[in-house]
Amino acid sequence: MSLNTSKLLQKHKKNILEIWMNNQLSDDGLREDLISNDDLRSQSEELISALVKNLTSDDLTDLEAESWYPVIEILGGIAITRARQGFSPRETGRFVNTLKEALLEVLQREISDGKQLFAESLKINRVMDNLSIITFETFIKGREEVILRQTDEISEISTPVIRVWDGILALPIIGTLDSSRTQIVMENLLQEIVETGSIIAILDISGVPAVDSLVAQHLIKTVAATRLMGAECIISGIRPEIAQTVVHLGIDLSNIITKASLASALSHAFRILKLEVRKTNSINKL
């Protein structure tokens, strides 16, 4: 980029900012529910200041140069923040594209020579397109981090250990049981066994859509870990289709207590603890 053009953009930095802000505020997709106009202006001003400063570089295609670090860092921070706030890829992409439109508009106003305008506009397009790619890549990484965190939170919520009776724990499993989730299930269950001193744990799999050899192995590992802690484990929720699948796959669950329902498992746990539940005819009235 020529020195004159670089000085031109620096000179008109405030004008570029205003055009860019107008472009953003007039966009039908503006998310005022996610970011205030003041915060939007603050982000825009910080980025445009760093960008115009680095447009003085002779090699505008090498965005890995040290001089571009401030721009990449600011843009990356904005992309990560927007990913966490819930912006869509399109909305984040428009943030950069509207800046490119503002830069090109100022060049068209200030450069009268057609050849120079074409050459300088081409350079701006290349720079901003590369920055758009960086923004998108960083945004995707941020969104993946959000998804992974939410997945972990959902896994924690969906594997609650319930103390159903003194000495008896129940853990209803809902959804697919994979390796990572099995680890969470075991950690939560073993920790609760230690804290409560329970000697019976019921794993209810009535909410598991299907049981294959891998899921069965995960269940066997959980049962083994529970027994090492001195507690007996009962698997409940064995539906007819699951029983057929287990037999068809040749999975050996003969050394594990299995029951068709959580109620049956709880009744069996009572017998192990030599507890008896009786129904009384009288009802206490408040």
Rank of each mutant, 00 (worst) to 15 (best):
residue 32 E to W: 08
residue 32 E to S: 14
residue 32 E to A: 02
residue 32 E to P: 00
residue 32 E to I: 05
residue 33 D to Y: 10
residue 33 D to V: 02
residue 34 L to P: 09
residue 34 L to R: 02
residue 34 L to D: 05
residue 34 L to S: 01
residue 35 I to M: 12
residue 36 S to Q: 03
residue 37 N to D: 13
residue 37 N to R: 15
residue 37 N to G: 13
residue 37 N to Y: 10
residue 39 D to L: 07
residue 39 D to V: 09
residue 40 L to D: 03
residue 40 L to M: 11
residue 40 L to G: 01
residue 40 L to A: 05
residue 41 R to T: 05
residue 41 R to H: 12
residue 42 S to P: 02
residue 42 S to R: 14
residue 44 S to N: 13
residue 45 E to T: 14
residue 45 E to M: 14
residue 45 E to H: 11
residue 46 E to G: 05
residue 47 L to V: 06
residue 48 I to K: 08
residue 49 S to P: 02
residue 50 A to H: 10
residue 50 A to D: 10
residue 50 A to V: 11
residue 50 A to W: 03
residue 50 A to E: 09
residue 51 L to P: 11
residue 52 V to F: 05
residue 52 V to S: 10
residue 53 K to L: 11
residue 54 N to V: 05
residue 54 N to S: 14
residue 54 N to L: 07
residue 55 L to G: 05
residue 55 L to P: 07
residue 55 L to S: 03
residue 55 L to A: 03
residue 55 L to D: 05
residue 56 T to Y: 08
residue 56 T to A: 15
residue 58 D to G: 11
residue 58 D to C: 05
residue 59 D to V: 01
residue 60 L to Q: 03
residue 60 L to P: 01
residue 61 T to P: 01
residue 62 D to A: 06
residue 63 L to N: 11
residue 64 E to Y: 12
residue 64 E to S: 14
residue 64 E to F: 01
residue 65 A to N: 15
residue 65 A to F: 04
residue 65 A to G: 15
residue 66 E to N: 14
residue 66 E to W: 09
residue 67 S to I: 08
residue 67 S to F: 03
residue 69 Y to Q: 10
residue 69 Y to P: 00
residue 69 Y to A: 05
residue 69 Y to D: 12
residue 69 Y to I: 00
residue 69 Y to S: 09
residue 70 P to L: 00
residue 70 P to C: 01
residue 71 V to K: 04
residue 73 E to H: 11
residue 73 E to V: 03
residue 74 I to A: 04
residue 74 I to F: 03
residue 74 I to E: 01
residue 74 I to Q: 07
